[in-house]
Amino acid sequence: MDGKFIKFGKNLVTTDEFVAEGHSFCVGCGEALALRLACKALGKDVIIANATGCIEICTSPLPVTSWRVPWIHTLFENTGAEISGIEAGLKILMKKGKMPERDIKCVAVAGDGGTSDIGMQALSGAFERKHDFLYLCFDNEAYMNTGIQRSSATPYGASTTTAPAGKLSIGQTTWKKNMAEIAVAHDIPYVATACPSYPFDLINKVKKGGEVKGPAYVHIFSPCPTGWRYPTDLAIEIGRLAVETGIFPLYEVENGRYKLNIDRPKLRPVEEYLKPQGRFRHLLDGEIAKIQEHVNEEYAKLKAKVACFAA
């Protein structure tokens, strides 16, 4: 930790690494990059509660740890509750004078399964009770750690091991659960989507989410070469394509007000995003057209929400 920065145009990025080298994320993992950047945004005055999942497994093999910030993992589905206890605990200990007053960010980290499936209830409870915490969902769109099983965040048409494409199936037959919108529905002060292909945007959002008083949620698109079956050097491009096709738009919702951070006048065709990925390889033109139609619709809805709040 030397507190130095590297300058990228107007953006400064710390050289401090809060997740040490020697972690066991897969080769070319987009999530590992997203985590690295998010932790840079958070800095050292943080306590992280991590749900079971790729990040947990790849960073904490006893008797060693990758973490250079205080970190705790207990279970899969309870991260919302655990961070509630951490936040309430710190607050009351400071209030009672048992701990010096200081700013410690309480941050929960989980995957898409740990968030939009099994951890939803605990997270909803924590949002509703308005604890002061930031929740980071690293979304690699399936249960990757256990071997690419479908989750409610798996996109339509993707082949996974529990919703495989076959003679009678296209794989996932349901549309991806919109977790960011579910967070918005809890009327929390800050919700954002981010992608490591846009590192400064990601860093800014995580920083903002950490600084906001009350619950904040950042949904981070995390390309997975292993589960999505694309070459290990493509994480950044896949992320960019997801954003530029409108499949994963980058937006923020501050106190209920929507703002698109990247808005292309014309979206790229979804095919460009789907093609390089093995999980979509089986899709025929009809299905691709269906996905295109859905993306157009969802994107239009999002733009309408943004327009609602335009000055």
Binding site: I47, N78, G85, I86, A88, G89, L90, I92, Q121, G125
Partner: peptide, 26 residues
């Protein structure tokens, strides 16, 4: 009583919140 009372949404979360609180020394 000067305490934080967390009205959690399930028993699973009750004990999970306790884990978090205990981990910071409460």
């Amino acid at each position: 009583l000067n305490a934080a009372y967390i009205p959690v949404e399930s028993e699973h979360s009750a004990l999970s919140a306790c884990l978090g609180a205990a981990a910071v020394g409460a």
